[in-house]
């Protein structure tokens, strides 16, 4: 049983027994893990009250080789996001981040860049202007890191550039995972049509750099992007995320 030290974001916490907790942690080095924190609810626990939901902790974990829960032996608070306690909309955004990390990632499948993206997103959720764009950017980062990013530039089936139909609108297969050319579209399930502006906004939100900031405070552009990305994620996890209507 090896002791591993890593940074972890608490994405789920369930009280068990008298004073213990079972935590779902999204860690930087190990990916998603479930761990038992014995005595975590006691005031004088070795975890120093650091294991609160949506806080980042520096933890030491005894990793079990079997299916049994890992054992948390130490946790020191590294970062707490005050905005989440002051603003209900920010709290819902933070919980949505946690819900996606729990639903989309597999156990013991680390993605350090996704962990870092989660922290950056949580850090800035207090700003109501950039919040909708930040959450969308996080969702797209999630899809890209996990290899689930929809194809935006070429037809997901044939690889040809999708020539727009009906003005600048392009077919987008929610189930097939990307844009579809007119030749491949027939017979595909769950197809939406996106305007050129919507597709461009998704590209900007998914790209590095500052181009995505042009979407801040622009509900007209973000509305269709929200619907499309939400539908892709709902399709991938097989249900609508509980917090999706609130972000």
């Amino acid at each position: 049983m090896a002791a591993i030290r890593t940074l972890a974001l608490v994405i789920r916490s369930v009280d068990v027994f008298e004073t213990s907790r079972v935590l779902t942690l999204y860690t930087r080095e190990l990916g998603k893990v479930s761990a038992l924190a014995k005595g975590a609810r006691r005031l004088k626990s070795p975890f120093q009250s650091g294991l609160d939901l949506l806080s980042v902790c520096d933890i030491v974990l005894l990793h079990k080789a079997s299916e049994a829960l890992d054992l948390l032996t130490e946790a020191v608070l590294a970062e707490r996001y005050e905005a989440l306690t002051h603003d209900t909309a920010a709290l819902y955004g933070g919980c949505y981040v946690a819900e996606l990390l729990d639903a989309l990632t597999d156990r013991h499948d680390p993605h350090p860049r996704l962990f870092d993206a989660s922290r950056v997103t949580l850090r800035h959720l207090g700003d109501p202007v950039s919040r909708p764009s930040r959450i969308l950017r996080f969702e797209l980062a999630c899809l890209r890191e996990l290899g689930l990013m929809p194809a935006l530039d070429t037809c997901v089936h044939c690889g040809q550039p999708p020539s727009p139909t009906e003005g600048d609108r392009v077919a987008f297969g929610l189930a097939t995972g990307g844009v579809l050319c007119p030749g491949c579209r027939p017979g595909q399930p769950h197809v939406a049509t996106l305007s050129g502006d919507t597709l461009e906004a998704i590209r900007a939100l998914a790209s590095p750099g500052d181009a995505w900031k042009a979407t801040w405070g622009d509900p007209e552009t973000l509305g269709p992007v929200r619907s499309t990305v939400g539908a892709v994620i709902s399709h991938l996890i097989g249900r609508r995320p509980r917090l999706l209507p609130f972000v």
Partner: peptide, 12 residues
């Protein structure tokens, strides 16, 4: 409670 959810509830 002095937790994220407790603090958010107090603020609400």
């Amino acid at each position: 409670n002095p937790t994220l959810e407790g603090d958010a509830t107090a603020r609400l």
